[in-house]
């Protein structure tokens, strides 16, 4: 893609993101309408409920969608690059099942506590990734081994989850919402807790993307260029886990964003890890914000699980990309 084309994609993305952000904040459907919400920022008088809705619900939720979309898709992209495997995603590496198990434990020890859930799911994600990494260090980091290890760790943690729910069936209610994924119970406090970790991790990823990209050339060539492959892989896996763990602790299990978004971007002829990362951050957030808005507006006041909308919109698009790329190559 020519330089102009690349720049255009970024600019279009940023503008769309700003538009989606504003729509998510201000579009109203019930008795509190768009006008009422806009009044809060720009008008002189506004109702108390409009103010509360904007500040306590809309702002945290939209920020969460922005952060989680960016975090999950960049995490997925880094994993796919480091492991040279388009099927890699936070879910496949066991992060989701690790977080899920720990969320369940949080539900038992500290029932109904959103803060405990957030902390525990984060810890679970890191534990799962560390397990996968340690096993792969011994068994090897080939594509096959990585995927299989991720499957094994996921099974292990899921078995743990199922065992616990047999003994504590009521703990599952806390976890059910987590499994489905969604942003309906996001609070400003939760967002502010996850924000520093996500931002810092994204900064580190951008700083290290040069090294990470060299891993694609194989360990020997990368070493020849001055990169320590083992060290780079360890750091990348850890940062991906922290990114995905933070996101998952906020929005539950939204597997789609970390797998499909990076793959779409990799296929749209955009070269270079730096450029792809930028697109992941922009378009990952954009996609999640749009799907979140749809999930709450279509059947207001009933919410459709956002994971459903992500798949319903994203999967056909991805299939179209696969088909059209195939034609281009031929």
């Amino acid at each position: 893609m020519k330089a102009d084309g690349r720049r255009t994609v970024v600019i279009v993305g940023i503008l769309s993101l700003i538009a989606a952000f504003l729509i998510s904040l201000f579009i109203g459907n019930g008795t509190v309408g768009t006008g009422d919400l806009l009044q809060v920022l720009f008008g002189s008088s506004y109702s108390k409920s409009a103010y509360i809705i904007l500040t306590r619900i809309r702002i945290p939720r939209t920020l969460a969608a922005l952060l989680c979309g960016a975090a999950l898709s960049s995490s997925g992209l880094v994993l796919q690059t480091v492991l040279d495997n388009p099927l890699a995603s936070p879910g496949i590496i066991g992060i989701n099942s690790g977080a899920g198990l720990f969320v369940l434990i949080a539900g038992i020890i500290f029932p109904f506590s959103a803060a405990a859930r957030q902390l525990f799911s984060f810890a679970g994600a890191v534990v799962a990734v560390a397990s996968v990494y340690l096993i792969c260090k011994i068994a090897g980091f080939s594509k096959m081994t990585l995927v299989l290890t991720g499957v094994a760790i996921s099974s292990l943690f899921t078995a743990g989850t199922n065992t616990i729910t047999t003994f504590y069936p009521n703990a599952i209610t806390d976890k059910a919402a987590f499994n489905l994924g969604g942003l309906s119970s996001v609070s400003l406090q939760g967002v502010l807790t996850a924000l520093p970790c996500i931002v810092i991790c994204l900064v580190i990823i951008f700083a290290k993307q040069g090294q990470i990209e060299l891993l694609l050339l194989g360990d020997e060539t990368a070493s020849g260029l001055g990169v320590n492959p083992e060290h780079t892989r360890k750091v990348s896996l850890l940062i991906s886990a922290l990114l995905a763990g933070s996101a998952v602790s906020l929005c539950g299990l939204l597997g789609f964003v970390g797998l499909i978004v990076p793959n779409v971007i990799r296929r749209i002829r955009c070269e270079g890890l730096l450029y792809r990362l930028i697109l992941c951050v922009i378009y990952g957030s954009l996609f999640l914000i749009i799907c979140d808005v749809l999930s709450r507006l279509i059947f207001y006041p009933y919410e459709i699980p956002v994971g459903l909308i992500l798949s319903a919109l994203g999967a056909p698009f991805f299939i179209w990309i696969l088909i059209s790329r195939r034609k281009a190559v031929r």
């Binding site: 019930g30 006041p301 009933y302 919410e303």
Partner: peptide
Amino acid sequence: AVVGTVTQPNLEAILELE
């Protein structure tokens, strides 16, 4: 007014009713 389902009530809908 309906404020969502019993398993997932909608906070916004609740707040709208002041």
